[in-house]
């Protein structure tokens, strides 16, 4: 007789914790398995991401307490159950993941101490340099055109993805800058799902945009509605137009949630802390979740726009 293999989770994202408590009973399917992470998908198409310790914990995710290299004890399409007990079980593999006494992790930023304009300008400038120096395979090399996007040419593009998307991207940024939220929403559908990677580059970019908007402290009452509609249209476009992993990332971003490393970069940017930014951005590029450079490019673009809003006010 086979014995039951027991794994332990060491950390759980608060949103996932709440979700489990609310649901009581869940039947899930293994969606995908990578070296250091695996995704489960529920019947309602909610994605749950499990990672090993060397990988950053994600919103709606948990970290397993295992030694690496780790072989996941299940395969794609296996059924995983949650029955109200603090554990997940994989009946066909005689395996379970215990969720008792697991540390909680907050998937969003709290207590942000917004830095002054000068400091934030400096961190933004530094971030652009970091992204520009990174050898990007996605669209992040376009970071160079942020200062003069009215006059871009295809000569600014170093790969086929950039060439393809340049025009639409500029249109999108222009609309956001003008706070023409309806146009921005339309233009976003021309971006979502485009680019290399499991989370296509433009999706990483777009989650950075949404995340930045969420933490933008200077929203005026008059524009709240327009913004909310824009965000809603991006989230719903993502559900139709891109991969499930990408769509959930965008949804989380709309709610102010992101993986730990991405949040660190954002915090440093908002607080205007150069040293912290340096470390976090470097890690996000090297070791972060996929397509870190496209995400950072999105932060640069959006924060540049936010700066111009402030100046014009």
């Amino acid at each position: 007789m086979k014995t039951v293999r027991t794994l332990k989770a060491s950390r759980i994202a608060e949103d996932l914790h709440t979700y489990f408590i609310e649901k009581r009973y869940l039947k899930m399917r293994v969606h995908s398995v990578f070296q250091t992470s695996a995704n489960l998908v529920t019947q309602d198409d909610v994605l749950i991401t499990m990672v090993t310790a060397s990988r950053d914990i994600m919103p709606m995710g948990l970290t397993l307490d295992v030694t690496e290299p780790f072989e996941w004890p299940f395969l794609i399409d296996d059924t995983v159950e949650y029955t109200g007990f603090p554990m997940l079980s994989v009946p066909s593999r005689q395996c379970r993941i215990e969720l008792q006494n697991v540390k909680r992790w907050t998937p969003y930023l709290h207590n942000v101490k917004y830095g002054n304009a000068k400091a934030r300008l400096q961190t933004l400038k530094r971030l652009k340099v970091i992204v520009a120096k990174h050898d990007s395979l996605g669209i992040a090399s376009l970071v160079n055109m942020l200062d003069r996007w009215e006059n871009v040419t295809v000569a600014d593009c170093d790969n086929v993805y950039c060439r393809f998307i340049l025009y639409d991207l500029v249109q999108f940024l222009q609309a956001v800058k003008m706070k023409d939220w309806r146009a921005a929403g339309n233009q976003a559908t021309m971006l979502i799902g485009f680019g290399p990677g499991l989370t296509p580059s433009c999706d990483d970019f777009m989650s950075a945009v949404l995340l930045s908007l969420y933490y933008d402290e200077g929203v005026e009452k008059s524009e709240r509605e327009g913004r909310a509609a824009f965000i809603e249209s991006v989230v719903s476009a993502a559900k139709k137009q891109t991969t499930l992993v990408s769509a959930s990332m965008i949804q989380h971003a709309a709610e102010g949630k992101a993986s730990g490393l991405y949040l660190c970069v954002l915090r440093a940017l908002l607080e205007g802390k150069i040293d912290a930014l340096e470390d976090a951005a470097t890690s996000a590029l090297q070791f972060g979740a996929s397509s870190g450079s496209d995400f950072l490019f999105g932060l640069c673009a959006m924060h540049q726009i936010i700066q111009t809003w402030r100046v014009s006010v």
Binding site: A53, S54, T67, E68, P69, S283, Q286, F287
Partner: peptide, 13 residues
């Protein structure tokens, strides 16, 4: 000290 392993370009293993 697994936290620094990344900064020396490796994995926990």
């Amino acid at each position: 000290a697994p936290a620094i392993v990344q900064f020396v370009g490796g994995t926990p293993a």
